[in-house]
Design a protein around this nucleic acid. Structure first.
Lengths: 252, 252
DNA sequence: CGTGCGTCCTGTACGCCGTACCGTACGGGA
DNA sequence: TCCCGTACGGTACGGCGTACAGGACGCACG
């Protein structure tokens, strides 16, 4: 289990994020530096998860003593703050997206999902009071622009953006968990389900859970698996956007 | 940081969840037992978070040696599995809810939010391939019944339920994080924002992020805080239900 | 050309964690 | 009565984050 948030001392995180007090590299040294540390940490987290991310492993990957990291970074929490802002930099923020607000929100949703797929550990980091780095700002600004000029007031714009991000978070969680479950156990959903069917058959009383039994059986047949994250994401996104459309029309 | 999921060996978890091989308590002993351990663990996690939940602390709370826990439970992962199924038992599953599918889904959403508020650690536990205990089953069955008989096929029913749960998860995360941030730092959102304003004023270029600046300012004024989780939840729920309504009508 | 200081780097150590292993104590069937 | 299965727990191992106390080295200054 990974601890909840990566929220370290915000003042320290901010200073690093905006590279205040940048230091010119010393002559003969490899000079490590915040960037290299963050890059290495992201690689470790991508490959092995946030749980397995340790200062010792990051240092090892850089060929450096563990404690050297603390020259550049106050601690693990602040490191994670910077990691978050860094990968947010991967999100595109094009000036023009053809197709109106709906296409813009779809783009945002899909890109965020893709980002979470590339960096599953993002889902484990608390993002209330996020580290207010440049990329976090750019993301927020871009997302708000997607719903600007539709007749919504500022608060409503924020609410819509929050809704989209919240939805994507939930859906991404499902998708990532499904992928990780398969990788970690070596079993597909189908195989896993089948492996536990004998036991469940003994304890599970279909009369007590009739609807679950019916739907579970149908889902199993249709997907050849318990859960199809891609389909769930597309389905939910359409519903959420429909709901937003109703709202926008009512305000227009 | 806490590791991602609480997914231990599913076979072992299942055996405990359905209390297969229940053992009659020995005579003169307090007999500990799975139930007591789980209850103590939930108390610890509620009070201090999943990160701070340790076998040593649970044992201490029970006045028992740490290793004694392992007589009843294979390990921490399986303990968390059982904790999840146990707290799901707090969810009401009334036979009749007045007001149709919309009221039923609202009830589900609100009760799930409340559950996450009571047990914030739930949000940190992976629930793909959940521990298929009796309460997980009952929850799933109840939720499916909320959308039964509306003209949706089984797959669609599952998708709608998944959507609601995904949405609630995202919104609950926001609400819980906001509450925890305040408790942990001792600062309200407003105080926190204000504390970092001087620094941000120096590095933040409002011309680069015009929309974020505008909305941020408006939100700050309106809420006296950066984020109002209650309002965000209600707003999003209405949008999601509207989207589902559009879908149901199209299928009816 | 010293020399001293500031910066970068690191080894050691402390207190946590989960849990493997093994010894102990005791209730109950033979 | 004896013996064994079960409940219980002490010790120990390898991991973690990081406090602290140095060591090594470039550079400004006398």
């Amino acid at each position: 289990m990974t601890e909840y948030g990566g929220t370290g001392d915000p003042a320290r995180s901010l200073a690093i994020l905006w590279r205040t007090g940048e230091r010119p590299s010393r002559k003969g040294r490899p000079d490590l530096g915040v960037d290299g540390i963050v890059r290495a940490a992201i690689e470790v987290a991508d490959a092995e998860g946030l749980t397995a991310l340790s200062m010792r492993k990051v240092a090892e990957r850089l060929g450096v003593g563990t404690m050297s990291l603390y020259t550049y970074i106050p601690g693990k929490a602040e490191l994670i703050d910077v990691m978050v802002d860094t990968v947010y930099g991967e999100l595109p923020t094009p000036q023009d997206v053809p197709g109106g607000w709906r296409a813009r929100l779809e783009l945002i949703a899909r890109e965020n999902l893709a980002l979470c797929r590339r960096h599953p550990w993002l889902l484990q980091v608390a993002t209330g009071r996020p580290p207010l780095g440049p990329n976090v700002m750019a993301k927020y600004d871009f997302e708000l622009r997607a719903v600007d000029g539709l007749g919504l007031d500022e608060i409503e714009m924020d609410l819509v953006v929050t809704l989209i991000n919240g939805y994507v978070h939930g859906a991404a969680r499902g998708a990532v968990e499904a992928a990780q479950a398969e990788k970690q156990t070596g079993l597909t959903d189908e195989q896993w389900w089948w492996a536990h069917a004998p036991f469940l058959a003994k304890v599970f009383d279909a009369r007590r859970y009739p609807t679950a039994a019916r739907v579970g059986a149908a889902a199993g047949e249709a997907y050849n698996a318990a859960y199809d994250p891609e389909r769930a994401f597309e389905f939910g996104l359409r519903r959420v956007l429909d709901g937003i459309e109703v709202f926008i029309r009512s305000r227009g």
